[in-house]
Write a protein that binds this DNA or RNA. Structure first.
Lengths: 181, 181
DNA sequence: AATTTATGTCAGCCATATTGACTTATTCCG
DNA sequence: CGGAATAAGTCAATATGGCTGACATAAATT
């Protein structure tokens, strides 16, 4: 009780508002907006997947299999940065319920290549569509461009991860069946 | 096996690259950048707190107590959107290890007002500083302004949450002891 | 005095993650 | 060919952070 931090009571009388450009000043606005924004963002997927008895882990697996049809278990582990055991349970459930199928690798028959079933592709697309709606609305309401948003998010990554993530996203885009024009 | 989704193999021969302005097109770039960026962002706090035997839940409590000294348990629950039982465990550990103290409410003696100890304030500040560093580097590297980043994150929130979050952040800023100018 | 509110707590459950050890099938390599 | 390495799967135990439901206490409100 002797060492309570009386921050609130010790404020100086002169209150300056937002935007402290001082680099030593904690960017509480950005920190907290990140937290609340991400919670809202993942809430979309959480709610939709819960209706099928799945959790966040299932969604992540579903999403990246949707984006990289034929991905191997090892590659998926590398993206998600979880253990084989954790992914194993989730993947087994997705296979048992008919959202994902595994096929033997062509070149390397030890591999289990992952694909979505039609049912899985439909669910993944529905979730992606809702998330896209939220992000597009955010762009419209904020007046930001998609390019600037991408640059900002990319900048938040560790510098040595940026190239890797860019490549991954580009690779996913290359797997699209619905490319037009 | 009959209903595998052969998305990858069914692509049309004409591949258009990035930036589809089509609103019906899933914004996979933004969706995945959100995921990777948030993981990197929380990784900072996770790593630092783990050295003290704490997890992500402890960090969140610590952070919001730092920002709102004298906050009540009910208010903290409202911010974090978790149950009393979940917060209770985390809070007890933070109190037992001397990072948080509870004082009886002045007006309402049922309340337990939460404050950080000096030790707690130091840890919270250290984490906030590292997160701020990441976000400031993101702004610098992306060429975006802090204002545009805030607008974008705010836009990701549910529209009816935006005012509430803005108010919360402003209230936290009002509790700063280190306001200058 | 009765009710409501703020907080805390007990007990149990679930989801997601971890580590470590081990198996099986297959490929790679000397 | 045969041994080592690799891809995947599995068993068992553990930790964390959520949850529900039920209940207790003290203080405020009516």
């Amino acid at each position: 009780m002797a060492d309570i931090n009386f921050a609130a009571e010790q404020t100086s009388p002169v209150g300056a508002a937002a935007a402290p450009a001082d680099p030593a000043e904690p960017a509480y606005d950005l920190i907290e907006l990140m937290f609340f924004a991400y919670r809202a963002f993942t809430g979309d997927a959480d709610g939709m997947l819960a209706r099928y008895g799945f959790g966040r882990a299932h969604h992540r697996a579903l999403h990246f299999v949707a984006r990289h049809p034929g991905i191997t278990v090892a590659e998926l582990l590398d993206i998600l940065k979880i253990t084989k055991q954790s992914l194993g349970r989730v993947l087994r459930e997705l296979v048992e319920t008919g959202y994902v199928v595994q096929r033997e690798g062509h070149a390397d028959r030890r591999q289990r290549l992952l694909y979505l079933t039609d049912k899985g592709a439909k669910l993944a697309a529905e979730v992606a569509q809702v998330q896209t709606g939220r992000l597009m609305r955010a762009l419209a309401d904020s007046g930001e461009t998609r390019e600037s948003a991408c640059r900002l998010f990319n900048g938040i990554l560790d510098p040595d991860q940026r190239r890797e993530v860019e490549t991954l996203i580009a690779r996913g885009d290359g797997n699209r069946r619905d490319r037009h024009k």
